[in-house]
Write a protein that binds this DNA or RNA. Structure first.
Lengths: 99, 99
DNA sequence: TTTTTAGTTCGATATTTATCGAATTAGAAT
DNA sequence: ATTCTAATTCGATAAATATCGAACTAAAAA
């Protein structure tokens, strides 16, 4: 019983973190761009497309990555971002399709 | 085209508001309690169950109501809260089942 | 080796937010 | 009319967050 409760509590921590990550217009835009492009994108690319400073984009990229909503693949100094679909499936099944 | 973009933007405003509303452990607990109870609940009732002060519960109730995640039915000075399923369906289909 | 490029981190700032107890409102019950 | 009950609002406070430009790091290119 205690185990179940604390498990639920832990899941809530993760849910809160994920919702926080999604509760920002720029991060939603980043997710949409990635979803619609159906491919990886770099920091600069997203920054240019959405007209946000590179430091801010970097900040948001990190926020998304930290809660497991995105993946990073690094090639030299360039980082490619993509959606981590399993996280969406698990915590927000059907959400991406609503974008 | 502009119409579609601004429509998308407006939807994002709503999405951000909804995610903000869900990005709080106490509000998630309130939603779970309402979902599992499968019935309306009052401010006091929820406050007692979750051990939160009544002013804080009232604050959270309002937050949930303002973004359309819950309904209120008032009887005299007592307010009964319930989930607004249509909002969940529209913006977070399948989410409630993950709780 | 110098210069360019991609991204991160830092410092500063302004805004938002969660929380509580106290005061308040409005209705119910005595 | 007084008292009790349910909920909201207020004031204060502490914590989190988004943003930018500037400084920095590390790798690629020249």
């Amino acid at each position: 019983m205690d185990i179940e409760i604390s498990q639920q509590h832990q899941d809530d921590q993760q849910r809160v973190a994920i919702f926080k990550a999604l509760a920002d217009a720029n991060r939603l835009r980043i997710i949409r761009v990635l979803y619609q492009a159906q491919r990886e994108m770099t920091c600069s690319e997203v920054g240019a497309q959405l007209n946000i400073s590179k430091s801010t984009v970097s900040y948001h990229f990190k926020a998304l990555r930290l809660v497991g909503l995105t993946n990073t693949r690094q090639v030299a100094q360039t980082k490619y971002l993509s959606l981590q679909f399993t996280t969406f499936e698990r915590y927000l099944p059907g959400f991406l399709a609503t974008l």
